[in-house]
Amino acid sequence: MMKTTLPAGANTARFRGRRRRPGSLARDIKAYLFLAPTLVVLGIFVYFPIIESFRLSLNRVAPFGSAEIFVGFDNYTRLLGSSEFWNNVVVSLFFMVGTVPVGIAIAVAIALLLSYPVSRLSWLHRTLIFVPVVISSAVAGVLFRWLYNPVVGHINTWLGAVGIDGPEWLTSSNWALFAVTVAVVWRQLGFNVIIALAGLQQIDNSYYEAAKVDGAGVLARVRYITLPLLSPTLLFLVVINVIISFQAFGEIDILTMGGPGQSTENLVYSVFVDGFVGTRFRGLASAQAFLLAVIIVAFSFIQFRGFRKRVHYR
């Protein structure tokens, strides 16, 4: 367009501003009506509870009933001074370390294999590998509880067949956390492979062709092309998996209920126990929930900052 049309452009801006006015109130109201159900539900059941949760965390709530006494930050100081709380923090961190790197590494390796050959068997590979994605945490817990059964479970039966005396997976404080971690990684695997595969398939083939011309082998191509170009996807996977690892609940509830002792009791499970099991401490539970949320948000933030330098953006 020619320079002479510039004033007309300026007019358009003003025109646009004016065009909104006739009937704009009706237009606004119509939009709000379309949005109302979503906004109301999110407002009442997502945003309001944030404030309410913080308020509860500043109160001591009667175990049976709803009487509340304002105690300031008492719940928080009690938590920070309690070894149980720090145990739960450590368990949550172990979960993160145990599930995130392993889960993502396995998923990326599988995605690389899946993206290589196209064959009549592809649908079968995908079906078998993706299937955990539709399994609930409760069912995953039940399936693994059977496999882990020390006497008649398949894992120990198979280990016994090769002469290994399998441990009592779920009741030994050495193995319980590992056992739960495996179940969590398993259920998350389908999701991670799908995301990794989607990321791989966005990488333009011309990069690989150029590298091949330069004589790069398969491993070199993975190292110098696939992984750097996959880094936005990897960042996404890390953040999501960290959040999910902190939220592991169903498998723990079914497999160990936080035990033996408190060896598999992460923060979420502790919130549940304090808030809903036996003598209830809703104020204390809310304070833990609040700290957990702060940790989750902080972790996502730190990872974004830390990774950003190394992420290759296309």
């Binding site: 509870p49 979420v268 919130v271 809703r282 809310s286």
Partner: peptide, 13 residues
């Protein structure tokens, strides 16, 4: 917003 933060107040409500 993590669900862990909202479920106690939602339960009360």
């Amino acid at each position: 917003v993590p669900f862990e933060l909202t479920f106690i107040p939602n339960f009360v409500l």
